[in-house]
Design a protein around this nucleic acid. Structure first.
Length: 431
DNA sequence: CATGCCGGGAG
DNA sequence: CTCCCGGCATG
């Protein structure tokens, strides 16, 4: 919902800037109305039709604005939440986008078509559109059009909820090492998401999605703060996966990591932990996937990181208690570590890989140091260890951490991870 | 004894 | 494949 509103607002904002029309005042209401129900907007539009045909100049402007609209809608959404600063950012971004779009005819054509197709309305209103009512009307048309592409909006509502729940996770991560570990991973996710989205959907949409993400990321970077609608959104998703579907989480984490695995190696260097994000960003050429993204990449990265962070934390939570000792033990044992969780560990390993290097020098000692240092580092170490030891000597030795059985008890066997139910190595609580 | 997990089996 | 369990190894 807000997404639309935001786009609209931006649109209006632009219009006002460009044309300096006085009608802007109603923007807030208009916008809201538009968001809530397009119909009202249309009515206004019909009424305002007169205004539409103000100036030839206006028309040209309207065209630009329309373009902007498309762009803004795609990109602005995330920012909308933020505030003026964000708006500014949006402006800039929008300008950038427009420029890029104008450059490439292909991209442009589709949007234009749409606008026309909607109904001559925007043409008629066209000039006025940008301003006020007309803009609403036109926007209304857009909305209907854009709505499908933006369907992500539905998800939007969830963010707030997730945000709250998610916060706890986040805070710890921040305090501890959040940025470090997340940094490397994030980029990957981002890219993945972006790439998938981009590839699948038409250019305009792509823009939206990517942009939004990017924007959120940017905002984040600038502010250095987390408070971002986008972030919340991401977190929410993650969280849902994690909490709601415990099993799902295990499965989920592995999948994404696998993809990521390749990129992480480069960034892997643990030392950078504190500054990892920055270093990684540049490194993560992953952008290759999304060349058009260009500036976006950096931003997108941050968002993903959040997700990964959560995962990390989660894993760490499970692992932390016993994991450290286990890691040391495993290391000493040598191959033993391997046994523990090929599946998850491998997936996670990506991010962790770097740690292995550290360990290589001294298997045992490192574990201790890590334990002292940070939980995350520990986690990393643990995770990393598995990859190293390829062959499991005998059994897993025995998971030290709490397993589903202990956690949920025989009573709630339903809640156990499948592996535990099958009497297999627990997948949910990896050691 | 309780637990974790491998190996193997049934559908 | 999923779903189990016998039985070993461990603490």
């Amino acid at each position: 919902m807000w997404y639309f509103c935001t786009s609209t607002e931006l649109f209006l904002f632009f219009a006002s800037l460009q044309q300096s029309s006085s009608n802007g005042a109603p923007d807030g209401q208009k916008v809201e109305g538009g968001c809530l129900s397009p119909e009202p907007a249309e009515e206004q539009r019909s009424t305002d039709g007169k205004r539409v045909s103000r100036d030839s100049d206006t028309r040209s402007v309207s065209l630009l604005e329309q373009k902007r609209k498309v762009v803004s809608s795609s990109i602005d959404v995330p920012h909308a939440r933020r505030s003026e600063e964000e708006v500014d950012m949006d402006k800039v971004t929008a300008a950038m986008v427009l420029t890029s779009l104008s450059t490439s005819p292909l991209v442009r054509s589709p949007p234009v078509r749409v606008s026309e197709g909607l109904s001559g309305s925007w043409k008629d209103n066209g000039s006025a559109g940008p301003f006020t009512p007309s803009s609403n009307s036109s926007s209304g048309g857009y909305w209907s059009w854009s709505a499908p592409s933006d369907q992500s909006n539905p998800s939007t509502p969830s963010p707030p909820l997730s945000a709250d729940s998610f916060k706890p996770f986040r805070v710890p991560s921040l305090g501890g090492v959040g940025p470090g570990p997340a940094g490397p991973e994030d980029p990957i996710l981002d890219e993945q998401d972006g790439s998938s989205l981009l590839f699948d959907e038409p250019i305009p949409r792509k823009r939206k999605v990517n942009t939004s993400k990017d924007m959120s990321l940017v905002g984040r970077n600038c502010d250095s703060d987390l408070s971002d609608g986008e972030e919340d959104f991401y977190y929410t998703e993650i969280k849902l996966n994690t909490d709601s579907v415990a099993d799902g989480l295990s499965s989920l984490s592995p999948a994404s990591p696998s993809v990521l695995s390749p990129p992480p190696p480069p960034p892997s260097p643990l030392p950078s932990v504190s500054q990892l994000p920055d270093s990684h960003k540049p490194t993560q050429p992953s952008d290759t996937k999304e060349p058009h993204a260009g500036g976006t990449t950096p931003l997108s990265r941050s968002a993903p990181s959040a997700l990964y962070l959560i995962h990390t934390d989660h894993a760490y939570q499970a692992t932390a208690p016993v994991s450290i000792p286990s890691s040391s033990t495993n290391n000493s044992a040598g191959s033993a570590s391997t046994s523990f969780t090929p599946t998850n560990s491998s997936s996670f390993s990506i991010s962790w890989q770097s740690p292995p290097v550290t360990f290589t020098g001294t298997t045992v000692s490192p574990s201790k140091s890590q334990g002292f240092g940070d939980q995350r580092s520990q986690t990393i170490a643990v995770l990393s260890s598995p990859p190293r030891a390829t062959a499991a000597l005998s059994r897993k030795v025995r998971g030290e951490g709490k397993k589903c059985r202990k956690v949920y008890g025989m009573e709630n066997r339903d809640m156990w991870c499948t592996a535990c139910r099958w009497k297999k190595a627990c997948q949910r609580f990896t050691d």
